[in-house]
C-alpha cells in the first residue's frame, strides 16, 4: 500500500524548517505500520536532509558551511542570479530527498534526528512530497 501527500511551504532567506511534524502526521494518516518513508522536493533550489534535532546553532553552522563551500558568486555561467546559481549547486550536492525506515508505526529517527527543508534562494513559495510505502 502506498500513501503520498503533498505539502506547500513558504520559506525565508537561508531558512531551515523542521518538517518532521508533517512527516509523522502523514505516517499516522496512512495507517501503514512497517515500510519506508520517502520525502522529496522538486524545487531545484531547495534541499531536504536529516540532521541533529533540537540545536539551532548546528543548523546555523550548516548554513554557514554550505555558503563557504558554495559561495554565491557573480561569475556563474548561468545567468539567473548568484543565489539561484549557488542554490542549484547546493541542491545537487546536499540532496533533495530523504528515505527513512518505518518500523511498528514509528520512524527510526524519531526523537534523535529531524528532517529539515532548506531554502537556498531567498524567500519563496515551495513544496515537498511525503510518500509512505509498506503495509
Amino acid at each position: 500500500m502506498v500513501y503520498t501527500k503533498e505539502y506547500k511551504i513558504s520559506t525565508g532567506r537561508d531558512s531551515m524548517q523542521n518538517i518532521s511534524a508533517e512527516i509523522c502526521k502523514t505516517v499516522e494518516d496512512s495507517g501503514i505500520r512497517n515500510g519506508i518513508v520517502v520525502v522529496e522536493t522538486v524545487d531545484s533550489t531547495a534541499g531536504i536532509f536529516k540532521s541533529v534535532s533540537g540545536s539551532p546553532e548546528a543548523l546555523d553552522d550548516i548554513v554557514r558551511e554550505m555558503r563557504r563551500i558554495v559561495p554565491a558568486r557573480i561569475n556563474f555561467y548561468q545567468q539567473e542570479s548568484p543565489e539561484n546559481g549557488a542554490g542549484h549547486i547546493k541542491n545537487c550536492l546536499f540532496g533533495s530527498s530523504v528515505s527513512m525506515i518505518l518500523k511498528d508505526g514509528k520512524l527510526l529517527c524519531e526523537g534523535r534526528e529531524d528532517v529539515y527543508f532548506a531554502e537556498y534562494d531567498g524567500p519563496r513559495e515551495s513544496s515537498f512530497c511525503v510518500c509512505v510505502a509498506g503495509e
Partner: peptide, 10 residues
C-alpha cells in the same frame, strides 16, 4: 586566486 577569494556578492 579566484578560488581562494570568490567573487561572491555578500
Amino acid at each position: 586566486l579566484d578560488k581562494l577569494i570568490p567573487l561572491r556578492y555578500d
